[in-house]
Structure formats: C-alpha cells, structure tokens
C-alpha cells in the first residue's frame, strides 16, 4: 500500500523536476530549514514558558496568541516544503526509519496540542499548575525528536 503510493509519487512531474534539477532540492530544503526554525523556535518558546523557565510573569494566553501566526505560518511552509522534498525519493523516505518516526512524533505532537487546547488551557493555567508544565515538557521533547529525526534522515536515506 505505502509502496504503491511511493511508486506513484515517483512518476509525477514534481518527482521528475526534483530529481532532474541540481538546485531545486537545495532551494526547497532552505525553505524547510527557515520554516522549521520558525515552528520549533516559537513552539519551544511557549513550551519553556509553560514549564516556567522563560517570560515568567507574562500572561500565557497572550503569549500563545501572539506567537500562533509564526507557528502556523512556519508549519504551513514546513509542511509544503517537506512534502515537496519527499517527491525527490518517495520510496527512500517511506522506507526510512527516521522518516517514519518523525511522522509519528508529528502526530503525537498534534494530539498534545489538541489535549492542551481542549483540557489544559481552559482549566488549570494558574502559575505553578502541573498540567501546563507537563504539556510543555511533552511538546518540547516531541519537537526535539522531530527536528533530530529530520536531520538524521539526511544521513540514513
């Protein structure tokens, strides 16, 4: 099933363009790095704040609201550029352990965000409350994994 999808992706014009060009992969990669630094940077800032390490004494809701455009803008760019990179070698990425682990970590980070917005944020945001600190710590670990696995793909594919 996954192999079939990979085989199909490899026949698309985008796949041809990515493998034929000497500079296109690198250019998309630069976009991916810019995007991931925005996503990771803004999320890590919120996480460290939730854990209680930075921007102490500032209001969490306002901080999160202020950073959301950076996070989502960066995430959209990371998703577009990341998907484009896959077209350069779909079979290779789909079979790569770090790529698979990265996708799973992304899904877990998504679940963590939903849990935070639905259950944690509406209730226990008092300074020192445990739930936001746990949410922040889980998110930080997951995003460190996502960035690390992403870098490791380049060495193992």
């Amino acid at each position: 099933m996954l192999e079939d999808i990979a085989d199909y992706l490899a026949t698309t014009p985008l796949a041809m363009a990515m493998t034929d060009s000497t500079w296109l992969f690198g250019a998309v990669e630069v976009g991916h790095v810019v995007a991931l630094t925005l996503v990771f940077g803004s999320i890590a800032l919120v996480d460290l704040h939730l854990i209680g390490l930075v921007e102490r004494g500032r209001e969490s809701h306002a901080l999160i609201r202020r950073l959301l455009p950076l996070t989502w803008g960066g995430f959209a760019l990371a998703a577009i550029t990341g998907s484009t990179l896959v077209f350069a070698n779909p079979q290779g990425y789909f079979a790569n352990g770090f790529f698979r682990a990265k996708i799973i970590a992304l899904a877990l980070a998504g679940i963590n965000v939903v849990v935070f917005h639905r259950f944690v944020q509406p209730r226990s945001m008092a300074p020192g409350a445990l739930a936001p600190r746990v949410s922040g710590a889980i998110s930080l670990v997951l995003w460190l994994c996502i960035v690390s696995f992403g870098r490791w793909i380049g060495f193992t594919i």
């Binding site: 810019v34 630094t37 460190l144 870098r151």
Partner: peptide, 17 residues
C-alpha cells in the same frame, strides 16, 4: 557529527525566533 548538526539547527531556531 549529526548530533552536533542538530544542536546547530536548534541554535539557529533560537536566532530566528
């Protein structure tokens, strides 16, 4: 080397943010 690169990328994220 990959792990040093990961620290490098995380530090880039700090500069960017």
């Amino acid at each position: 080397v990959p792990e040093v690169q990961i620290v490098h990328v995380v530090a880039i994220a700090a500069v960017v943010i």
